[in-house]
Design a protein around this nucleic acid. Structure first.
Lengths: 335, 335
DNA sequence: GCAATCGATCGAATCGATTCGATCGAGCGC
DNA sequence: GCGCTCGATCGAATCGATTCGATCGATTGC
């Protein structure tokens, strides 16, 4: 009955008595309210925002960078009555190109975290399905909106800070460069080849200062243990670098832990810098020298963009500001 | 056209030539494949599993216990073409009882993490909507399926371990007891009143051994910083306890950090035990004495139960085993 | 008292895919 | 050559809520 619809929605003209009567008999019949599926079909909207996590979920969740952004996003979307559907990205290199959910699940908008390269199958699938998409920290591509930060300038500021302190032997620890997620030092040739946008930009920031890193060490994921492995590899030898610039705070904190493990003092024996500006329980607040990015804001900005995309508006890219925060993990090189 | 449906689904009898022809003209018309909303309505299934996180998302995500279970769940659900919709639970005490998503979003099954008390508005909403529900670590209630672990026995084992080592002054640091998320020591009277099931059971485990904790310290969330606050409060005084039993590893690791901060050696000056068996980057592997629970398994079990609920089967509760793992954070009390 | 107007209510069409039954044509056996 | 059978294709009904237009009744103004 159409009157029932009015009774439940509350909108439209309806006598209070009738409304009451409808709700009453609904209760008797054990009717639990309108079926969302019918509503969605009629409206042509599912009320669902697909969030594609560009990494194994367990890994992504272990990184506060992802979870803070996700939290900001969910917080913004909740009041709009929009839900977040978790869509695993392509995790293993041998897995199917895209998750079946991405092909078949209903979603009004998609948010792609850690968007990949030009030929990212995730993006092409979304484009084929005609789903408006916003990409976090990805490459500028036609038809999708990108939200990012000024990685390059931020990283250059960190590196310059180390140069100003007098460092000359600087190593850098990077995020993964591609789906292979190689671990270890990479050679010159690799640096010329394409790599994930975020890794590229943060690397370019270092190079912009004129620094030639003594080692570029790739990690398979932004996790403490990989930072620790990198730290042990880099700092275990006598001709170790005097400073290590890391592309994430988790990696940096791993390097700090490794340094302590090796009996090295930070920053007297080695300086360590990170990127992101997250709170780490095992380091004092503001201890780590890092580039702070507004993570929760980023989530909220994503939320606003989703809103605009749903309204059918054209949306401009956003680049959010970053700032260098000097802590106590960087200092002059040992004499 | 009904033939088009057959062409896309692939099921049913259809000549290869026709199929090809249909797909061809679909491409010309810019048709991107079947609309999920129509399919869902017809099938009466949304393919969505609502996961209600019983805490602010940012907090929940910072706890590996939640994320590992979630990861196990998503991993099991993915191949079934089921998606996970994140539904915020009731976060602030003054927020509306349940999130609007819980009222209106389409979901075939709900998973409630950290299910609350008897009168949990989340559970009653789900029951009213007739959505099959499985609760993680909640209270046994009619009509819902519960997946949990043997908290009580696990906690008793830890406490007994400390008793065997000779401790007599034992304090305990608890998870939040109710929505108020009070922080600080609680009095005897509070312990008699109802509290969240998981907190109650882990507390009962301690009491089962006959131990009367010198302090029961409640925290507002299972986070390192709250463990650290608790540690500072408990260990800052001269008549400090010789052992602290914590209801989670994150809390325990906070206590360890606080102890180190205060110049106390663990376990020589104070023993610390946790619960959950997660890997913490800032502690060596297996360093913390704790009760290990099978987190990823728990997620997979949840996945199986979701599957069974979708098939309309009656599902039995599951209690998963735990085991005490003695590390190096517990030892005999100081002489 | 009659007509016009306004508000409440109801019928019917719509969203898009699926699926059951019916129809149509071709191939095969007798 | 005729009839039967099987497979492919097509029409139509269905899932459930929403919404536009139409109808119905009552109230008010003249």
């Amino acid at each position: 009955m159409s009157t029932a619809s009015l009774a439940f929605s509350g909108a439209g003209p309806i006598a209070a008595a009738t409304r009451e009567r409808v709700l009453e008999s609904a209760r008797e019949l054990g009717y639990a309210g309108p079926n969302p599926l019918g509503r969605q079909l009629r409206r042509g909207r599912s009320g669902i925002v697909g969030v594609v996590i560009g990494d194994a979920l367990a890994r992504a969740f272990r990184d506060p960078v992802s979870t803070q952004v996700l939290d900001g996003l969910v917080g913004h979307l909740g009041p709009l009555d929009l839900g977040v559907l978790l869509v695993p990205g392509s995790a293993a290199p041998d897995a199917p190109a895209v998750d079946p959910l991405l092909e078949s699940a209903a979603m009004d908008v998609a948010v792609v975290m850690w968007g990949g390269n030009d030929d990212d199958p995730v993006l092409s699938t979304l484009q084929r399905r005609g789903i408006p998409t916003v990409v976090v920290e990805g490459r500028k591509l036609p038809g999708v909106c990108v939200v990012g930060i000024d990685d390059r300038t931020g990283m250059a500021a960190t590196t310059q800070h180390l140069l100003d302190l007098g460092h000359t032997r600087i190593a850098t620890v990077t995020l993964p460069m591609d789906r292979d997620r190689h671990e270890g030092p990479v050679d010159e040739a690799r640096l010329e080849r394409p790599m994930w946008e975020i890794t590229r930009r943060r690397l370019d920031g270092v190079l912009d200062t004129g620094v030639r890193p003594v080692v570029v060490y790739e990690t398979p994921a932004s996790l403490v243990e990989h930072g620790a492995s990198a730290g042990r590899a880099l700092l275990g030898e006598p001709d170790r670098p005097t400073a290590v610039v890391c592309q994430s705070d988790l990696l940096a904190s791993g390097v700090v832990l490794a340094a302590r493990e090796l009996g090295l003092r930070v920053p007297q024996d080695v300086s360590v810098a990170g990127f992101d500006g997250i709170e780490l329980p095992w380091l004092a607040p503001d201890e780590l020298t890092t580039v702070v990015q507004p993570l929760t804001d980023k989530g909220a900005t994503l939320g606003r963009i989703v809103e605009e995309l749903l309204a059918g508006e054209e949306v401009a890219d956003h680049e959010m500001p970053v700032s260098l925060r000097v802590g106590t993990t960087t200092g002059p090189p040992p004499a």
